[in-house]
Design a binder for these strands. Sequence first.
DNA 1: CACTGCGATGTCAGTCACTGTCATCACGTA
DNA 2: TACGTGATGACAGTGACTGACATCGCAGTG
Lengths: 187, 187
Amino acid sequence: MGRWEPGARERLERAALELYVERGFEQATVAEITNRAGLTERTFFRHFADKREVLFSGQAEMLEICVNAIVGAPEAVAPLDAVAEALRAVSAPLEERRERSQRRQTVIAANAALQERELLKLASLASAVADALRRRGVTEPTASLCAEAGLAIFKVAYERWIGEPGGRTLADVIQDSLDHLKAATAG
Amino acid sequence: MGRWEPGARERLERAALELYVERGFEQATVAEITNRAGLTERTFFRHFADKREVLFSGQAEMLEICVNAIVGAPEAVAPLDAVAEALRAVSAPLEERRERSQRRQTVIAANAALQERELLKLASLASAVADALRRRGVTEPTASLCAEAGLAIFKVAYERWIGEPGGRTLADVIQDSLDHLKAATAG
DNA sequence: CACTGCGATGTCAGTCACTGTCATCACGTA
DNA sequence: TACGTGATGACAGTGACTGACATCGCAGTG
């Protein structure tokens, strides 16, 4: 445990998201975040590589879910369908925290530096997915293409899901995007 | 023209790429770059928003080429094929400077911050492409999906082209990747 | 040729993200 | 009680980036 109160990392994440929402990412300083969390700047940088990373702690979990879904899919499933299955698996935890996802996404949408970090996280996700596909025997360049295409589907679907009034499920929007992509590439 | 020698921007770009190759992106300071270019730090930041941007000046040109290719494509051409045409149009100027592209890509591959910037540039490219498709009458989510799929094709093809001994043309690799994607989504 | 407006550069001080280093504290264990 | 371990605090330092103002070169104008 920590020196005084436990859960330092979680407190930092909460304080950071709050401040980023209140005053914007650039206007919030790390000193303010750590003050609100009752810690020092140095401790912030022990938990997070930089000021942006504090918004992306869930990434490791998403990556694990994705890879497991692909590795665990039946042999007969086609590469792109295995990727779609992984996306559906990932959508579940996001679905549960729609409110939080929306607040987070609003912050990210307002700042280019945060968009960069999100794109890097998604790219590393695609890289891991391509790896998992290769372990299923899928050859290049099909593995990378399916991974990147899945990423494209997810990006489009996630954006639509966040922006929509709230009727459809994220999994539904993903399926819809997949169908549209298949139709567009059928020509 | 500038205060003394003309071409300040170009001198900064050259000096930066040289230093990034010699000692790596993080180890090179802006002060060193501007010393080599015979300018001051302040001038560097007047020409480029940050230390990374100096490697991405060709982006605006690529974007224009892309959009023009799509807008100029015949009405009958399917969305994804219009995107493929745009990618081929973009590949021409890259083809001519293969050596430079390789050096640049080596620097970028060695540093996460530069990869982030590249991903952001590619994302803005995709966004512009989706815009151009919409102006052709393509509806959502097809426009965004085709743009993102085209981005996926380009990423995979470019990486392969840079890494290959040098036999195939970038345009060839792009066509090959497009075929593979169509095959993978046909299931 | 002198004058003047403008754009690009130089100068300087300042903020803030991020790092290295060492001291300090809480907690478990012998 | 003594000790080891891990997380935190304290502090100095580097470097990216910014704002404000002075300065210089070049064009046009008279």
